[in-house]
Design a protein around this nucleic acid. Sequence first.
DNA 1: TCTGGGGTCCTAGGACCC
DNA 2: TCTGGGGTCCTAGGACCC
Length: 435
Amino acid sequence: MSDAPGTAASGERIALVDVNSFYVSCERAFDPKLAGVPVVVLSNNDGCVVARSDEAKALGIKTGTPWFQLAESAPQVGLIQRSSNYELYGDLSSRVMELLGRYALWQEVYSIDESFLGLAGTPAELDAQGATIRAAVARHTGLPVCVGIGSTKTLAKFANRIAKQNRHLQGVCNLDTMDPVVVDTIMSRVPVTGLWGVGSRLGVRLAALGIESVADLRAADPAMIRRKFSVILQRTVLELNGTSCIPLDDERADRKQLIFSRSFSTPVTTLADMRQVMSIYAQQAAARLEREGQQASVLTAYAGTSHFSTSAASFPSATVRLAAPTSDPVLLSRAAVNALDAQVVEGVPYTKAGVMLSGLEAAGAQPLFEEFVSAQERRNLGELLGRVTDKYGAASIGLGIAGMATAKPEWTMSRKYSSPRYTTEWSELPVVKAN
DNA sequence: TCTGGGGTCCTAGGACCC
DNA sequence: TCTGGGGTCCTAGGACCC
């Protein structure tokens, strides 16, 4: 088992470390007023709840709740809201990840607030390592983490969930040092949809077979699961039984697609405005592509009306294959604008739009042809735009109809409750006073 | 009035080729 | 009425994740 490809070596265990209520914890790390009170962080456009403090959870607030439904009663219940501040979260994330890496044999950063770590030692030593990691992150970043330890990724994820839900474990759950009878009991109480990889759709289909708890799925026949569901769910069954089959991804593969998508603060109803949207979004996407050293060969431009609107729905979308892989903002912008032109209907209230780039590959290959500008000049232009926007913000420079630095278009995203960029902007550094 | 954004993987089916 | 058998590539859709 432990010698199979992609599994932890003998004696090794997998830890899953994640930050509790990550976005809320980031806000709290810089604003003491937020400690101990219900706090929610909102999605772009201050649309809906994406992170909740324990106190907010205790108020019964669910992830995805639209802010407008909470706004009125918020002052009465003492609920505080923040717009999402991705610069802050991204910066704290990299600090946490760097720190975690110091304690591990290997590390796979799984998301903005989660990392798998390879640990070695006796079960008791692993308990101690978990506590050490937790204390170190708290001391260096002010963020609370939980640590789940198991012999497979799925079990580590499960252990992490147990650590979060049971205060007395003090943030660390090691399945190897728990009484197996207790583990069985917990597994028979946790619904199968609480597992990594089992969502609500699978939950319904599994329930029809009488598989409702984690323990039920662990006891299921892997071959039957494979037949009736998929290899993915079969892997989950095997992993629950201690056989590692989800490979480690310590080398982050290049991404395969890139999406720049936003909802508007006010609907876009004219073709002229939509052209501007497409131009700006495509340039944003191009800038990311440039930063990652990649090129795209396929572009999809899309827009849509509100899913909550009662008037006729409209979801125009067009995909174009580019003449050659590119990260050139000029070409991508032109492609995006042209792609959607024929499908956008004047007068329809579009509430969101996006540009998706796919067929990505590493940059470096020479373009197959040149138009008016040489490839080298184009590269320089893309890099220049990237450098300027990195330094002065996305609105500081743009091509053609996207160059609107003086008047921000009315539809641009709103973030009314944003905290300062404490760690990434000199002028917004927190000020500490000692008395 | 007001409801996010960004990814991955697997599977089935069609186009096309020999 | 009979009307092969593969293989590959691509895409759309479904499901999941944070």
